[in-house]
Design a protein around this nucleic acid. Structure first.
Length: 939
DNA sequence: GGGATCACG
DNA sequence: GACGTACGTGATCCCA
């Protein structure tokens, strides 16, 4: 992964002693019912809880002074000698604040003989040296000398950060000179003597003039003002002693190493017990809400042992939300299910997950449902588990006790459809689709997978197993662990209840935790809009498309398969004759040996594997140059082999008998740019470019009385390039509805559009595509089959004519380098791990991706916006068509014949206006309509 | 299970 | 100038 780009860890060091004094004076008096004053303790608890919850802290500790005598008293007996005794109302609060610290599971650090400031200095110095960021929670001026690049202070009373600027304001010098100023000015409250007659102002002036204390003292004789000169000369030693007093010790031998300050989860029971003891009612309510709803943010893998006190009736919190207890409830009767549903309603949100017999939403039979209402608070409701059928040796088991399916669904339906209860899933599209088949419309929803995708798309995968490992360092139970793998794998209805409970309960538990961890980040990282206006509303729409499926003429595909088979057999015969040997034409390795070893055609090795490269480009080159007929024959054979194995053979097998249609699955959180991907089967790569392949589209048909309607964006990415790179010439051309490639040719090569050589236009077209891909001379040369130098000249000419495009490319690269991601017009972030890779090949690869991603990603955002509006738009217009497929810039519908024209116009309008009202694009977006009895004719 | 190949936008 | 190249996907096949 990308260690270099990772955010540094953050260390929070709370100055406990400093805090208590200031809080005591700042807050109104407050006592608990036994008379113990607790105002400073309450302030402290508020501050600490806020810190634990809000701060992205990996390390937290509270540091205290231990006793009054320190090594400074040996240097100067009078140090802090005139401190008055602490007010009596403050005294008992010292111990309580230490207790509070421990109750929140934060280390309380103190060492005899050292002040808190010295410990803070030592930890801060070590942490900064390790590359961590440090925030010292204190406003003590004595700590300001520590401020630097990685270290800052935070004033908890004024809610204000104290960085280098603020230090400069206060002392008139940079943090590294604060000690020098303090040595001269002294400090009456600490009884640091300093030099008489010199205050902070004068001290700063002197230090700024002479650089540092030693230089100043050495050259004190040069000072013009007689009084100041004499004082300095007479009290040089006093200044040096003062320096020793104010200089914080950064090498205190620590009892607890920095690692020991790693943030732990709050133990709900312990913390609540402390708050109750001190009667902090508001805090109790707040903490209970937090724990009940979520559990405090999970610590990084922090496993702990503390248990809830069983005697405390008011505290019913899972012992440690940060650790996975794995104790979930198996719900086998209606009473218990009702109890959980009640709990769910009270919580207002549940993590929800279903177990089924298949990943295919049409085939899947419901086996069980799990839900979680808090961390470590999940249940599993089996509804479709079968007993084992046994074998020749017996071993058959009874069907386990379960709530009947229809009863469970009847109880769950009101909850799943309750608008006041949020249903959180991880890839909830699946659960939503299957539940819809059972007559339940799950809403409202949240999806932890999509939240993760919006936050960190492109940085890593977003499967639950991967995220649990990443965020909680937790190894989830894998499907194979409970259902077996390979030949012995069984469907989930065959899994014993104990294993099913552990697996399904964990799924809901992890989903809850992920949501709890990631959802707040959407707001903090300004990604809520992308999630709420694009990703989340798309879920039910895509589910509808998957459930709808598309009709395929299996008989037609079968005939094509037979045709392909016989033609391939003929070709194989010819190929073997030409080669003079029998070999597997489908084996690139054997083919390479035939072509280059046996027939001695010109060409070379390539690739790490040492095998000959026999890709289409190589064979095409060979067919032209060698004059041998074999390469072309192989190319023809390969085309048929591809079409047969991937399409004409495979697609009929994908037809679901339940519906007689093919139902793809769209992956919503898979691509680095925001596009969706189609799998099982992939219906986004159905052939079209060759006539032979195009025939396969004829097998995608409409139901009787219906037609297929295809509407696709024309040149959307190039239009977006014109818009986002602000290329006036391109924008004008699009506005005029001109032939964009001819226009580019004219602009770049200076030839008139009238009577243009088609070759020139083709080259311009390749350049236009190159723009979208992050153009390189090599790539363009390869594409056009021209020398690299010539390609380079074209690109130069293009940049010359349209400087905006070069600016855009540089801007994207810079943005990506600095932020680690690039953005679409709608605010989606496409992460680019490796953009700063030291390997130039990998780096340039990511740079081209950084140039392409905003264009491809913005186009993806736009079509998604159109798709979200489509069902409502159709319904409002009283149209009965259904959206079936999305192919990146195309939407395919199945519509009643009589509605084809009206639907086409509506869809076109929705697609063209999709950016509005969020973004107004100055280049017109054009969508083109096609209809027909099959996809080939509709497109 | 990884690499090569090729289907799409 | 290094490095190895157009951007983004998924399915199928071969072969270790």
């Amino acid at each position: 992964m990308n260690a270099a780009a990772r955010k540094p860890d953050h260390v929070y060091l709370v100055d406990g002693s400093g805090y208590i004094f200031r809080a005591f004076h700042a807050l109104p008096p407050l006592t608990r019912s036994d008379g113990t004053p607790v105002n400073a303790v309450l302030g402290f608890c508020n501050m600490l809880l806020k810190l634990i919850e809000d701060a992205e802290a990996e390390y937290i500790a509270v540091i205290f002074d231990a006793g009054r005598k320190t090594f400074r008293n040996e240097i100067y007996a009078e140090y802090k000698a005139h401190r008055p005794e602490a007010p009596p109302e403050l005294v008992p609060q010292f111990a309580l604040i230490r207790e509070a610290t421990r109750a929140f599971n934060v280390p309380a650090i103190e060492i005899q003989g050292y002040e808190a400031d010295d410990l803070i200095a030592t930890y801060a110095t070590q942490a900064a040296a390790q590359g961590h960021d440090v925030t010292i929670v204190s406003s003590d001026k004595d700590l300001m000398q520590l401020v630097g690049d990685r270290i800052s202070l935070f004033d908890p009373m004024k809610n204000r950060k104290i960085g280098e600027t603020e230090v400069l304001e206060k002392f008139g010098v940079a943090p590294d000179k604060v000690v020098d100023v303090q040595s001269l000015a002294g400090d009456s409250s600490d009884n640091v003597p300093g030099v008489p007659g010199i205050g902070v102002k004068t001290a700063a002036e002197l230090i700024n003039t002479y650089g540092d204390l030693d230089t100043l003292l050495a050259r004190a004789g040069e000072i013009k003002q007689p009084k100041r000169r004499e004082n300095l000369l007479a009290n040089a030693d006093l200044a040096r002693i003062s320096r020793d007093l104010v200089t914080l010790k950064r090498d205190v031998p620590l009892d607890v190493p920095l690692d020991g300050l790693a943030k732990q989860g709050i133990d709900g029971a312990t913390a609540l017990a402390f708050l109750q003891q001190n009667e902090f009612r508001q805090l109790i309510t707040k903490l209970q809400a937090r724990l009940g709803e979520a559990g405090i943010k999970a610590s990084r893998g922090g496993a702990r042992t503390e248990n809830a006190k069983s005697g405390d009736a008011t505290v019913q919190i899972a012992a440690d939300p940060a650790a996975f207890s794995g104790t979930h409830e198996l719900v086998q009767d209606e009473e218990r299910l009702v109890a959980w549903i009640t709990r769910a309603r009270a919580a207002g949100a549940i993590a929800f997950d279903i177990e089924t017999t298949s990943l295919n939403i049409i085939e899947a039979k419901l086996v069980g449902m799990s839900l979680a209402v808090a961390a470590n608070a999940a249940c599993y409701v089996p509804v479709g588990h079968e007993g084992k059928s046994g074998d020749l040796l017996g071993g058959a088991t009874e069907r386990p006790q379960q709530i009947p399916l229809d009863r469970a669904l009847a109880l769950m339906k009101p909850l799943l459809e309750d608008p006041s209860v949020l249903k959180i899933g991880h890839n909830i599209k699946y659960d939503l689709a299957v539940m819809r088949r059972y007559g339940i419309e799950t809403a409202p929803i949240d999806d932890s997978m999509l939240i993760s995708y919006v936050l960190e798309g492109g940085a890593h995968g977003h499967g639950m197993d991967e995220l649990a490992k990443l965020h909680f360092d937790h190894d989830t139970i894998k499907f194979g662990d409970v259902a077996g793998s390979g030949k012995s794998q069984v469907t989930f209805d065959q899994v014993p209840l104990d294993k099913a409970l552990a697996y399904a309960g964990e799924d809901a538990d992890v989903t809850w935790r992920l949501h709890n961890l990631l959802k707040p980040r959407l707001i903090a990282e300004r990604l809520t809009t992308v999630y709420e206006t694009i990703e989340r509303p798309l879920v039910p729409v895509i589910a509808g498309m998957e459930l709808a499926g598309v009709k395929i003429d299996a008989a037609e595909l079968g005939r094509m398969s037979q045709d392909f088979a016989s033609r391939m057999a003929d070709m194989e015969g010819e190929i073997h004759d030409l080669a003079g040997a029998e070999f597997n034409v489908g084996s690139p390795k054997q083919l390479g040996e035939i072509l280059f070893d046996r027939l001695k055609l010109p060409g070379g090795k390539k690739g790490k594997t040492g095998a000959y490269s026999t890709g289409a480009d190589v064979l095409e080159e060979l067919a032209e140059t060698s004059g041998h007929p074999l390469p072309q024959k192989v190319l023809d054979w390969r085309q048929l082999a591809k079409l047969k194995s991937t399409y004409t053979d495979a697609l009929p097998l994908a037809i679901r008998p339940e519906t007689g249609r093919v139902h793809t699955s769209f992956a919503l959180a898979h691509t680095s740019t925001g596009r969706i991907a189609s799998t099982d089967p992939n219906l986004q790569n159905i052939p079209i470019r060759t006539e032979e392949g195009r025939k396969i589209r004829r097998a995608f048909v409409a139901e009787p009385g219906h037609v297929l309607l295809s509407v696709d964006y024309s040149q959307i990415e190039l239009r977006l390039a014109a818009e986002m790179a602000d290329i006036q010439g391109l924008k004008d051309a699009f506005r005029d509805g001109a032939d964009i490639h001819a226009m580019t040719a004219s602009q770049v090569f200076g030839v008139p559009v009238e009577g243009m050589d088609p070759m020139v236009r083709r080259q311009a077209k390749a350049i236009n595509f190159g723009i979208i891909y992050g153009i390189s001379a090599f790539g363009l040369a390869q594409q056009l089959g021209i020398p690299q130098g010539e390609a380079k000249a074209y690109i130069e000419a293009y940049f010359e004519r349209y400087p905006g495009i070069r600016d855009y490319m540089e801007r994207m690269k810079k943005f990506a380098r600095e932020k680690g991601y690039v953005e679409t017009l709608f605010g989606r972030r496409c992460h680019m791990p490796g953009i700063n890779d030291k390997n130039p090949a990998r780096r340039s690869f990511m740079e081209r991706a950084a140039i392409n991603a905003p264009l491809q990603g913005t186009a993806a955002d736009i079509i998604k916006r159109a798709m979200i509006r489509m069902p409502g738009a159709l319904q409002d217009a009283g149209l009965n068509g259904r959206m079936l497929l999305q192919v990146h810039d195309e939407l395919l519908f199945e519509v009643p014949e009589a509605e084809a024209e009206a639907t086409g116009k509506l869809v076109k309008k929705v697609m063209e206006e999709a950016p509005l009202p969020a973004r107004k694009i100055s280049v017109p977006l054009i969508a083109e309509i096609g209809t027909g009895p099959n996809w080939a004719e509709a497109h």
